[in-house]
């Protein structure tokens, strides 16, 4: 390993390690791009591909992101942008979960869909895209529907779960599994010009409260559909939340929900009462 580190250091210029050097190191020493990036970050070498992160994300934070595992549940409108942004941010392990294949009605907004990918599993397109964007990222593609029965298994080892689902009942199951597994969940939902975002930490019930009045069916997305821009906006807000949660920085949308109206360009914040945790008297 010392040889590898020396080789990496020799190619670092102005404190930055060019991608060409990472790639050459992987080939020369028969290492994965992930292994090379980990070594670089552990040895204080900042990959040049993240140089525009550098003034807001320090190298030890970049290492933390690289060692993080984030599960993205749903790889459609929200999920496509979430995956793209997580990979560019430098999150090292990404789990992409979705049972579906691309259909023509996805093309107006789902960034992973193209005419050529119609009929292709969404998670397969996700893995191909992320390998192109950032070869150092390890992607686990799971073509399956998330539910209570398989949830704990699918989220194993994840530090954060991102809700990019299009179904309220499945979302409520995700919230339940996240609580059981003790994993923070970043919740996002969209419909037409509108969307909302909230983060739920273990023991909290924000998502359940958001859908407290839920009876059956879908929301306004059923009538309005979704345009190209609403998923991009809400997904970006979700990724900002993931980044803060992984780094333990800033103020996540905890016990509050941000509602976005892109038609009137209004944002509303709704507060949720923190859940009172009942302490069990051991005596």
């Amino acid at each position: 390993m010392r040889k590898v580190i020396t080789f990496l250091k020799e190619q670092t210029k102005d404190g930055l390690l060019p991608w060409s050097a990472q790639d050459a190191t992987a080939k020369r020493f028969k290492l994965s791009h992930a292994a090379v990036e980990l070594l670089a970050l552990q040895n204080g070498l900042f990959p040049a591909r993240y140089q525009r992160n550098r003034n807001m994300i320090q190298i030890e934070q970049q290492l933390r992101l690289f060692k993080s595992r984030v599960a993205v549940i749903g790889c459609g409108g929200l999920g496509g942008y979430v995956l793209e942004e997580l990979a560019r941010l430098g999150v090292g392990q990404i789990v992409a979960i979705d049972p579906d294949i691309f259909e023509e009605h996805n093309l107006n907004r789902q960034i992973l869909s193209t005419p050529a990918s119609l009929g292709q599993p969404k998670v397969e397109a996700a893995a191909e895209r992320l390998a192109q964007i950032n070869p150092a990222v390890t992607v686990t593609a799971i073509q399956d529907a998330f539910c209570l029965a398989n949830g704990l298994e699918l989220l194993a080892g994840a530090h954060v779960a991102v809700d990019a689902l299009d179904s309220i009942p499945y979302r409520l199951e995700l919230a339940e599994v996240c609580n059981t597994a003790g994993i923070p969940m970043v919740h996002g939902a969209i419909g037409g010009w509108y969307g909302h975002v909230a983060s739920q930490f273990p023991g909290e019930t924000t998502v359940q409260q958001i859908y407290r009045h839920y009876v059956a069916g879908k929301g306004i997305e059923q009538q309005l559909g979704n345009p190209s821009f609403t998923p991009a906006v809400v997904a970006s807000l979700e990724v900002a939340e993931v980044c803060k949660i992984l780094l333990g920085t800033g103020e996540p949308l905890r016990n509050r929900k941000l509602s976005i109206d892109l038609l009137e360009m209004e944002m509303q914040e709704i507060s949720y009462a923190p859940v009172v945790v009942t302490l069990v008297d051991a005596a």
């Binding site: 459609g76 299009d166 979302r171 419909g191 969307g195 997305e221 509602s259 914040e269 507060s271």
Partner: peptide, 26 residues
């Protein structure tokens, strides 16, 4: 009044009630 409310919440003079439709897409 800026906080999560319920359908069976009783209203009082001066309350600000806001209603949002169900949004669940992805």
């Amino acid at each position: 009044n800026g906080r999560h409310g319920e359908l069976d919440s009783t209203l009082s003079h001066g309350d600000i009630l806001s209603l949002f439709p169900l949004v669940g897409g992805g």
